[in-house]
Amino acid sequence: MNDLLNRTYQKQIKIYQPNGNARLGFSIWKEMFTELTSSRELILRLFIRDISARYRQSILGIVWTFIMPLFTVGTFVYLNYSGVFKLGETSIPYPAYALLGLTIWQLFATGITSCTTSLSGAGNLITKINFAKESLVISSLAQTIFDFSIRVFLIAGVFAIYHIIPSWTIIFLPLTLLPLILLTLGLGFILSISNGIFRDTTNIVTVATTLLMFVTPVLYPAQTFEPIATFNRINPIGILVITARDLVIDGSLNHPNEFIYAAVFSMIIFFGGWRAFHISEPRMAERV
């Protein structure tokens, strides 16, 4: 207990007032960065907590991370080879192509879903304890990134089976994934707040990601018919997923201008979403 006496008092005066977090200008960004850096440890703890709790009451455990993409890809492989769908020619064998595309897509789709429910799922934590709630959203996304990294091994296995050697430019993959992760997080910030107030958000996100997956050339090569082709040229999520996939397969940025546009778009969404989250956090806590 002597710590209390010995501690050098750092007088940090906090003032709570109406519209507290809402203001324009620079000070809010400083506050946001301070809060983020001081919650590093909490984010890590929440991440470890969720990862270790997730499979605790499960027999197959982490194997599920592999089963789900294999099952989806398996379905499409069957449909493709049986001739139900005509998916077109791919530069590498279809199973490897689809698995790669789907895994990158899942980084976005699963990420956005788990961010959306991260606040409403935390229940009384939100209303009973004051802490940086960004941590909940970020640690949910970290789980998805963790899953992604495990699935990389699955992809490596499938590539090995088909004797596919990815281009050396694969080392730039994290750079192309970064905008995708920031975009997911930015949208996740906005949607988690929205879901705290309107529970409809979860359903909308589920429907929208499913729809987007079929519109975006993830499980099949890019199509040329309109209006899908135009949509895919302007949809930043699609651009980022496809860029990352093509980098692994072809070893080049096929559409650099579109990538730059999507990356800038991601940054705007990320910072905008983060700020919106920070501002609306206390109002959301009253309503979650």
Partner: peptide, 22 residues
């Protein structure tokens, strides 16, 4: 504890707060 913000007025806290609300 700063979980809710007031609608009118102001709260000033000068030291580290620990709360056991639930």
């Amino acid at each position: 504890n700063g979980i809710y913000l007031p609608d009118i007025g102001e709260i000033e806290i000068r030291e580290k707060v620990g709360a056991l609300i639930d």
